Computed example of a mutant assay.
Amino acid sequence: MSVNPPQGSEQPQPQPESRSVNTQGAVDLSSLAPDGQAGQASAPAGAGAGAGAPGAQPGQPAQASGADSWVISVSPQELQQVVQLSSQVPVIVLIHGTDADSERMRTSLEDLVDAQQGRVLMAEIDASSPEMAQAQGADQVPVATAFIGGRPVGEFDKSVPQEQLGQLVSQMVQLATQNGMTQALPPQSKRSGGAAEETEQELPPLHQKAHDALEQGDLDAAQAAYEEAIRENPGDEDAKLGLSQVQLMQRTSDVDLNEARQKAAENPDDPQAQIAVADVDVLGGHVEDAFARLVKFIQLHQGDDRETVRAHLVELYSVVGDSDPRVQSSRKQLARALF
């Protein structure tokens, strides 16, 4: 079964040249892809073996019943074909086993990916397959690598709290939108039973309005929708997080990363130059680098510039999420820098 391209567009979207995340330590699967597959843009033969179909083998058709899904099971040899699809939508490649951690992460990601309705594709690789013995680090399951524009933009494993997985998937969609990837794939498989239909919840109207605006690349409309949601419910933490993320996208929409880094290097005492690099680093996934940059500035400066950077760092904490361990670690470093 071939992966169906987004309606009205079969041309690959531009690659996010300056938005890739440092993926040092990621599982290296590139050697498993046969020569000559890199240019293909169709799904592997196992595309029909979707989520919720335990034991499905590549080449078997999707089950006829169940909810639409954007999760496919693939073999390691088919990886490169799937990665090519990340020129159209973000792709998550999940290597999983049969252990409890794998099942929890797999189920959570399946629900989150399917909730995006084609804006993200997930390919699952069974770590028990003989071919995986060739992959460095493949025994460290579960592990997921995210791809946008044919490039890895980050890796996460079972150490990521369950509640943070949703933020990671949302950030992938937002990063793709920032790079002009606003279309969605049609369903690629079926999930057996009704579990997905029962767990999938509709977004509140204003959240859906913001989500739709992001799909269209209209950041101002997305901001307005989130602000209205907060006015209606000042305790709406999801809307606050969404607003912070949209504002980050607005600040970085016209930033050239190379120019920003050069300016920051040449002007170490300029708070706005350091803030600009921190913003693009957070958007691109270099969260720890962004936090460390601003904490260092706070350590070395006093007065209004120090307070400006401190306030911005706290705002970036809200973008990433207060429960994220990277935020918790940086808060401790900030406290030491201040006191």
Rank of each mutant, 00 (worst) to 15 (best):
E307Q: 15
G303C: 04
V327I: 11
L316A: 06
Q328L: 13
D304F: 10
S323R: 13
E307M: 07
L300N: 15
R331N: 09
K296E: 13
T308L: 12
F291T: 07
A292H: 09
R331P: 01
D324R: 06
S329L: 12
I298E: 03
Q302K: 14
D324E: 10
D305Y: 02
G321P: 00
L313K: 04
D289L: 11
D289T: 13
R326T: 03
F291Y: 10
Q302N: 15
R306M: 09
Q299C: 02
V319I: 00
Q302A: 15
E307N: 11
D324H: 10
R331L: 08
V319N: 00
A311F: 07
D324L: 04
V314H: 04
F297E: 05
V295M: 04
F291C: 05
D324V: 04
R326A: 05
F297S: 07
L294E: 11
Q299D: 05
D322W: 08
D304A: 15
E307S: 12
K296Q: 14
Q302C: 08
D322T: 10
D289G: 09
E315D: 15
E315A: 14
A292E: 12
A292Q: 12
E315Q: 15
T308W: 02
V320P: 02
E307Y: 04
L313Q: 01
V309K: 00
D322E: 14
V295P: 01
V327C: 11
F297G: 04
I298Q: 04
S329I: 10
A290T: 01
D304T: 15
D305T: 07
Q328A: 14
S323Q: 14
K296L: 12
L294T: 08
I298N: 01
I298D: 03
F297Q: 06
P325T: 12
Y317S: 04
V319H: 01
V319P: 02
A292F: 07
R331A: 11
H301F: 00
